[in-house]
Nucleic acid binder design. Structure first.
Lengths: 340, 340
DNA sequence: CTGAAAGCGCTTACAG
DNA sequence: CTGAAAGCGCTTACAG
């Protein structure tokens, strides 16, 4: 059996309570006793048992990280490693651990979250996505359990602490950028509208068009479903219209790459014939041909700040609800050209 | 306070022991009692407390997943989400959870692993990497704690259960492929040789050259360090030799993309002037220009099988050491050409 | 088939 | 500054 607090206590000639206090570095224990106990802990290679400590202290020092279900965005792309890195960095510096959801379906994830909070498996939860109407989020909100979202919640925006990019604004800026280059026919290839990030970007695109005196047209919008199932013909149809777009905004760099390939098959060149901008600025976007103009969304920050917020809530249940938009930057490369 | 087993027992007019047995679905409890107790659990929305259960049962039903430290390969690229997906799939179906390492440095990771095993935080551990000489691995091996590696261990190969691709073999095959296209000057841009995956691939490349009657030359090898710090000039030097290579094997698709860009700057075209093959077959490799010929390494399987192996070891400590090479496939696209 | 009791390894009022 | 004792919420021999 592993060495316990009792073994240490006996060996150090103190009580278990004292050993416990030394572990917690309580100020009520003399330096001398601490030294003695620590020496024994070292010698016996004592390590506190987490389960016992958590049970007694009613805290787990771990946070639950919930991924969107596997068929969705989060998994395919480089977003995930980078948020995780942000989360780990913050968690580690506060001596918290990370428990990852494993469920593949929405229902499995919901069940996992319920058992995490009811079973006190974690002290708080980070939702790595934000969807239109999400049972898991609603449960969390109603439970009063500390949680934080990476992504603006669709409802209850001022009751939930979250971190996000200002997606409406950056989509707006992207359109403005294209306008400033002289584009007037601007299409949008969107993501899954079930996710708030996608609908926000679409909304920003729409507003920008209107404010620029251009009008929004369904003919210039390809949604996620359509693109996934028949991307090639969708792009084909888009470009074969009477007045084809001269610029395309893509929801994500991965989508942009795919579009570029389809355009090539149609002998349409980027940026000569059509410009393209997208979001997320993947590591590869600089290497691809043409190097992609894309909005960097500070993924690391998103994870890092979401964790900081959560940890605040955990340590102070009275903490007020807050939210923060992480800064972004349009990285100009070579996929857009100026219309003369 | 949350509802406990005691509340359920009282409400159902049975003893706590009985409730506990119903939770475990013990065959020694009558169906009738089970029904009654379950009805009460449902009604009171009872959820077992993990910490208490784990402490009493001496098992955590969670596995620790240890990532390589952040500055290394694992994080940058799409490998990570995909192994995790494999791990989650296996773990979830066995009702295991996942605890992720958060440490950034080698030392932090080592400390985490020690406290995970000594503190009984997890039932088993998966190491997501394999390095030349790794304190963490040595500790795990000596501790007798169940663990599994994604990657062939450098030492103690027949004492450690692991999953990997047959990296020597696939590198060999890639060279054979290039030879079959008529190439005789084949260069290699490798990964960090501290990782076994990189040294295995280099070794396979070397052997294949020798077996093909070509000779290995340092002038055709660029290692990780050199490529990271001055990739551009390294590629420049490589191609400006008296007899430049007609083909390049790259350690990873991301590296291949970068090489292609440097070649372009030198006005060297792929595959017209030089062919390129790489490993890992990222999602993007089909979209890039030129579409990349790459070896698919079944990342999902790697994670999935590593977890299956681990779970076997956890449930049966007498299980014998095993290892398995997950199958791979050379995906031919358009980055290689036949020499006439 | 079911229950009373001990125990898992800690923490934390309470008392001194 | 330190200790004795109760308790965190379960599981599991042991007994019947």
């Amino acid at each position: 059996m592993a060495v316990t607090i009792i073994d240490v206590a006996r060996e150090a000639n103190v009580s278990p309570s004292t050993v416990s206090r030394v572990i917690a570095d309580s100020p009520r224990i003399s330096e001398q006793t601490k030294r003695k106990v620590r020496e024994v802990m070292e010698r016996l290679a004592y390590h506190p048992n987490f389960q016992a400590r958590n049970l007694a202290a009613k805290s787990t020092k771990t946070i639950g990280v919930i991924m969107a279900h596997s068929t969705s965005l989060a998994f395919q792309n480089p977003f995930f490693p980078e948020v995780i890195r942000g989360i780990c960095t913050s968690a580690h510096s506060s001596h918290y651990g990370i428990y990852l959801s494993t469920g593949g379906t929405e229902e499995e994830i919901y069940q996992e979250v319920v058992s995490m909070v009811q079973g006190r498996k974690v002290d708080g939860i980070i939702l790595l996505y934000s969807r239109m109407s999400d049972r898991t989020m609603n449960y969390l909100k109603d439970s009063g359990f500390p949680f934080t979202m990476v992504g603006r919640p669709y409802q209850y925006e001022d009751e939930i602490t979250y971190i996000d990019n200002d997606n409406k604004k950056i989509a707006h800026e992207v359109v403005d950028y294209l306008c400033s280059l002289g584009h007037e026919q601007i299409a949008f290839v969107g993501g899954n509208l079930d996710y708030v990030v996608s609908s926000d970007r679409l909304e920003g695109y729409r507003q920008a068009l209107i404010e620029a005196g251009l009008s929004y047209s369904d003919a210039y919008f390809i949604h996620d479903d359509g693109f996934k199932s028949k991307g090639k013909s969708a792009i084909h149809d888009l470009m074969k219209q009477e007045i084809p777009p001269t610029a395309i905004v893509a929801h994500d760099d991965l989508v942009a790459y795919e579009i570029i390939r389809y355009l090539e098959e149609l002998s349409i060149q980027v940026p000569k014939d059509v410009s393209i901008v997208s979001f997320n600025n993947h590591a590869l976007s600089a290497y691809v041909k043409p190097p992609l103009t894309s909005v960097d969304i500070s993924i690391f920050e998103l994870g890092f700040e979401a964790t900081n917020f959560l940890l605040e809530m955990v340590s102070n249940p009275e903490a007020e609800v807050k939210s923060h938009f992480v800064s972004t930057a349009l990285i100009e490369r070579e996929s857009c050209r100026r219309m003369k």
